[in-house]
Structures are given as structure tokens and as C-alpha cells.
Design a protein around this nucleic acid. Sequence first.
DNA 1: GGGTCTCGATAGGTGACGCCTATCGATATC
DNA 2: GATATCGATAGGCGTCACCTATCGAGACCC
Lengths: 301, 301
Amino acid sequence: MNLRDLRYLLAVAEHEHFGRAARACGVSQPTLSVQIRKLEDVLGVVLFERGGKVAAPTAACRQLLDHARAAVTAAEGVLATARSLRDPLAGRFRLGVIPTLAPYLLPLVFGPLREALPSLELEPWEDQTAALLERLRAHELDAVLLATDETAPDLMGVPLFAEPFLAALPPEHPLAAREAVAETDLARDILVLSDGHCLRDQALEACGQTTALGAALRASSLTTLLNMVAAGYGTTLIPGLAAGAAQDAGIVLRPLTTWTGRTIRIVWRAHYPQRPAAEAVGEVIARRLRGYTESTAATAA
Amino acid sequence: MNLRDLRYLLAVAEHEHFGRAARACGVSQPTLSVQIRKLEDVLGVVLFERGGKVAAPTAACRQLLDHARAAVTAAEGVLATARSLRDPLAGRFRLGVIPTLAPYLLPLVFGPLREALPSLELEPWEDQTAALLERLRAHELDAVLLATDETAPDLMGVPLFAEPFLAALPPEHPLAAREAVAETDLARDILVLSDGHCLRDQALEACGQTTALGAALRASSLTTLLNMVAAGYGTTLIPGLAAGAAQDAGIVLRPLTTWTGRTIRIVWRAHYPQRPAAEAVGEVIARRLRGYTESTAATAA
DNA sequence: GGGTCTCGATAGGTGACGCCTATCGATATC
DNA sequence: GATATCGATAGGCGTCACCTATCGAGACCC
């Protein structure tokens, strides 16, 4: 049994006439006769009483019509839904973003994304790199924004923009008097985020060390870290996009004497079929941040 | 797009694996790969993300699954319903019966019919011959029980039993003293049913006349007629199966000197596809009435 | 790190079947 | 009785779903 057969069944039942039903179906009358006959054989039920003025649906046929109609309607639902899903730049797009980037980047790019990709429903998800990659591989995210460089054979991605690090100092800190700060100068009293944040490792590496002040001071969020710096507990490196938040917290920012920073990439599964969507999202973000990267690079120079 | 394609779609989505889904569908893995690929082309949507450990349904695919499931379920509903309707001796059977027969025959045959054809839901419909034939031709009845002999090219039927006529007399009527009554003796004061009842014409014909007592006395039902006879307004001919009711009304019954009666037939449309059901119903009625016809014939003789 | 296994895609061949046109037989209509 | 209509049948044809065999990519494992 076939969807086509059911369509034929419905047509003949509606027109009560093989010829007209055939015309409605766009086939010849013999075709319809044969197919209905086969359907009757398959079902083991006589569907129409022929020979009178009309081809009258039998009682059995009438009992089947509702099911047949439901099947045809559902099948058309498949086609209609598929048509509405056809645009790869439409639908839900779950984007993972690391916590040291999300609060500062998303407000900048939400507007441009909505404007450039109006049918794409962006659903941000904030988590640390490892968790994001796990969810990405589990098909629970469509793409992620990362600040690390590692590659994997099952993933691919493109860099979007370079984000400089800035020295964050309490106003009364001796280094605050300088125009620019050397990373190694921060090493003495640098505060870092807790384990799992990629920014933690990057800040430590920039300062040329692998341990920082006591674990008790490890902040679990960048906001906490900024507040701790503002309170005079130490210094830190913050990503450039967080500059506004840092200044709001009463922190002095200084560029580093040699440019240091991280590169933000968008990453997706190698087999991800909606690659155009991921690339489009990345493109919008990169375009929005293009001017920013150049200006901060100029400031740091 | 095809029901088969939707079944394949559901299978792959469920197993998240082409090979296992193919085994579940009873086809080879290449078949499934090709068909899914074609379905993706038709829908314009990528359904599965291949290449990882599993063939993961895409977001678009998941949105289509409900529709696909509904279509497949409805199609299976068609098959299941058809299976339950396959027995031609099952289902609703609308049987038209003339009013001078129905009240006396149906109580006799209901039991045997239910016993012999337990899956047949008998739905009686009582009306006069012309109305019954109209409904029969309009497919609103499956068969009718008639007492007339006319045939039509679009109808067919078989005789079931012969029903004798009996003279119905008021107890004080002069003819009540005789063993048997001649039809012509009844002619003087015979009462008949109103227009449209076949029994009216048959009674008049048996008496060799075309008009009866004044139109005002024409009864619209056999029960009324019997009550009028019992009240002494005149005589009449009644069909044998109504004998019990007539005696209950206090009427004297006498056989006719020469056998006279009507033949009850079951009639259906020539193209009626459930002919076996009609024949089976007729057969049960005929068998139930076989002894009856012989015994009354003996009585009359 | 090269052999092995698994998975899905591809190639080529085959049979089934849905479709067509032409025609028939039956029935209704004039 | 001639004509028109309706559904069934016959014969031919092209598509397509299916198969087996094979490939290429990726994971796994001594």
C-alpha cells in the first residue's frame, strides 16, 4: 500500500466517479481503475460499488476514509514542514560561548546577528571549553566560540577576531602609574580564575608561570575576579572586551608592552550539515569586531 | 515521497545507524542510503549527520518525525481497519422490510440471524415497497425484504418463503362458521390498507376487484386493520405470519378454499459487492421459515 | 603505525510496477 | 437501434527500488 493509492482512494470516494477522479489526480482512467483494484486486493475489501450511475463507496470504504485522509494529511505535513526548514540559515542555532567572552561579546553581536540572519533563532549556551566541546560532540550544540587553538579531526572552525589582554590593576597599585605594563611585572601578585577557564591558563602562560596566588583566591567568574582586583587583592589580565566592565568596577587598565591576547574561533563538527549557518554566524561576528580589534591593537602599539 | 521513505526515515532516526535500520526494515544498507539520500533531495533538507559514530538526526529531521510517524500510523490504521472489515459477513447490514411483514417476521429471525451471522450487525428499516427500493438504490440499504414480484435490471434477489393469506373475520361474521372461506365471498365487506402497501393491492386482486370499502376506512397499518375487523367493521385478508396478532385481537381466522398468498423475496442491487452477506441473511430466514410454510400449507389444504 | 574492522556511499544489473494508449463490454440515453 | 458514457482489460514502455560487489574514510588495536 502506498500514499498514492490512498490519494486515489480519496479522489474516487470524493468524486464517486473514476474518470473525474482520474482527471483530478492527473492520471488516466485505466491507471486509476487498476490501482484501486490492486488496493482492493491488498486490503481484501471491496471499496467501490461500480456499475450504477456512480462509483459508490462501500460501507467498508467509508470506514477507511478517515485513516486514509489522516495519512495523506500527515504526509503533506512532512512536505510542508520540510519546505519551511529548507533554508539552512533558518531555525534554532545553539551557540556555546565560554564564560569570559559571553557577557561582553553577546551584547555586541546580538543585534547584527538578528539583522543579518533574521530567521536564525540564536540560543546561547554558556559553559567552559571542555563542557562546550562535549556538548558540541553530543550534537547538543551547533557551534561553539572558543579562545583556545587546539584542533581535532572531528571538528573544524575559523578564527573570528583577536582579543588583546589588558593589565587590570587596583588604582593604588604601583604599576598603575605606567603607560604600559610588562606581563612579567604582573606575575608577582596576579589573580586568576578557577580551574577549567581557558583564560586562567592563558594568563598564567603570559606571565611565564604555572601557579598563581593561593587557590583560595581563584575566582569562579570574571566578575568576581574584577571585584577582587578592585578591592586591592592583586592584579590580573583581562580580555579586551571586558574592559568596560572592569572600568565600571573601578579598575585601572593598562596595555601590555608587547601585544598579547587570544584568538576567538567559531568551531563546529566536521560533519555538521548546516555549515553555512555556522559560517554565516561567524562572519557576522567577525565583521562586527573587525574595527574593534584594529583600534585596540593601535592603542596597545 | 512515499510511505516507505517515511518508514525508512523513522527507522534510521530510531537506530541512528543505517545498517541496523536497514536490517530492521528488511532491506540492504545501500538501499536505505540511497532512499534516504533521495528523500533528502526531495525535502531539500539534510536529515542525518553522517560520519560520526552514529547517524544523528538533524534538528530539521526531528521536526519531521512527528508528521512521519502520524502518516505511517494512519496508514497502518487503514490496513488494520481493512483487516477487520475483510469478512463480508461482518459489519453493519441495513435490511429494509415492508410494514406488513416486519413486526411478525423479525422476532422470528432475529435469534437465528444473530446465531448464524454473529459479526453481522443487522439494522432493520421499516417502510413501504417503493420507499425501500428508493433507499436501496441510493445505497442507504443493503437489501430489502419484499412481497412483490417485479424485477428490475439493476436489482436481483431470491425468493425466501411463501406466506399464505388468511381470511380475517369478526367472530360474529356469517363466514366465521365455515371451515374455509372463498376469496370472492370476502369481496363484499373487505377492508384494506391505505395506498402504498403492497398487501392492499394483493388483497384486492385476490378478491377480484380494484376498489374496496370507502377510503375513510383504509387503515394505515395492519394493527389498525385488525382492530377494525375485530370491531366488526368488515373482513380482510391478512398474511399468515400475522395470525398470532390477529387471534390476540379476537379475530377469527379461516384458510382460503384455494391457496392464495405472497412470496417474500430478499432483493439487493445487482452490483452490490457484499452479495454473500445478503444471500446468507436470506438463507437463514428461508431456513427458519421452511417448516412454517409447509405447516400452513397443510392447514389450508 | 600498518593491518583490521565498521560504516556509509557508489556502481552496475535486474525485476517489478505504475503509467500510457487503444480497445472492449455493459449500461444508460435519445 | 444508434450513440454516449463508464469502468475493465490488453499490451508496451520507462522508471525506480532493490540487490550484490566494492570503495573510501575513519576508528581501533596489537
